[in-house]
Amino acid sequence: MTSGRIVFLNGTSSSGKSSIARELLDILDDGVFFHLAVDGFNAMRTKRELDPGELDAALRRTRMGFHRSIAAMADAGNDLVVDHVLSEPWRLLDCLAVLRPENVLFVGVHCPPQELARREKARGDRPSGLAEHQFDLVHTHGDYDVECDTSTARPRECAQRIKEALAHAPRPTAFSRLRERHLPELSGATGAVGEGRPTPP
């Protein structure tokens, strides 16, 4: 079975990832793509209030489960558009460990702080300052296959650029380069689910 392709969108909250994902599902016409968003996994959690320690543990398990769900869907042959916020270093390391790096098109979704704050206020469904807190964290790894700025390009334009990049995916991919840099012990591994990869710290 051929593993599916993964368009992996990374950016802060309110940066425009979900809007780009919707446009991608509309214009990607060479396969059947599914949009997997970390917010969707968060929304499935019980609504009862959790103390800080319990919440942190639940969120970590949620992220780890999300990453493995991405891998399982792709390994079953599904093409995916993933919407994530890599605001903690271990999240990227875990993704590098569990996903097939050669199948991932890594997309940096950028937006300046002032516009993020405006969008956050307009949405009214995010804690104030969340995007600002994430701003200096999500792109620290410094390596992408393609990047876009949603303050200067509309979601459709960003999606079109990503579609073109997907058709001419670079080799090695950004995920392959990052895995070589951060997880050299896994270099050359395919990254399929269930191969006994290490759990991140």
Results as ranks from 00 to 15, higher is better:
Asp94Glu: 13
Ala174Phe: 02
Asp75Gly: 00
Glu164Met: 11
Glu195Arg: 09
Glu88Tyr: 12
Gly129Lys: 10
Ser13Val: 15
Pro127Trp: 11
Arg181Gly: 06
Asp83Thr: 04
Ser151Lys: 05
Thr62Met: 15
Pro113Tyr: 02
Asp26Leu: 13
Tyr144Ser: 14
Pro170Gly: 03
Ala167Gly: 13
Asp79Glu: 06
His139Phe: 13
His182Leu: 15
Glu195Gly: 15
Pro200Arg: 05
Tyr144Glu: 02
Arg154Phe: 11
Met73Gln: 12
His110Leu: 14
Glu120Met: 04
Thr2Gln: 14
Ser3Tyr: 08
Pro101Trp: 07
Ala71Val: 02
Val32Lys: 11
Arg197Gly: 12
Ala21Gln: 10
Asp136Leu: 05
Ala58Cys: 08
Ile27Ser: 11
Phe175Ala: 03
Trp90Glu: 03
Pro101Ala: 03
Leu93Thr: 07
Arg48Leu: 13
Ala74Arg: 13
Met73Cys: 14
Ala159Asp: 08
Leu86Pro: 01
Leu178Ile: 10
His182Pro: 00
Thr190Phe: 11
Glu157Cys: 08
Gly188Val: 08
Gly11Met: 02
Ser15Met: 00
Val138Arg: 08
Arg119Asp: 10
Val109Asn: 03
Ala174Ile: 08
Pro101His: 12
Leu96Asp: 09
Ile162Gln: 04
Leu186Tyr: 10
Tyr144Ala: 04
Pro155Lys: 09
Tyr144Val: 10
Ser15Trp: 01
Glu102Pro: 03
Pro52Cys: 01
Leu28His: 09
Ala189Val: 07
Thr190Glu: 15
Arg161Ser: 10
Leu28Met: 12
Ala37Cys: 10
Asp30Trp: 14
Gly191Leu: 01
Leu80Thr: 06
Asp51Met: 02
Arg61Val: 07
Thr150Cys: 03
Ile20Glu: 05
Asn103Gly: 06
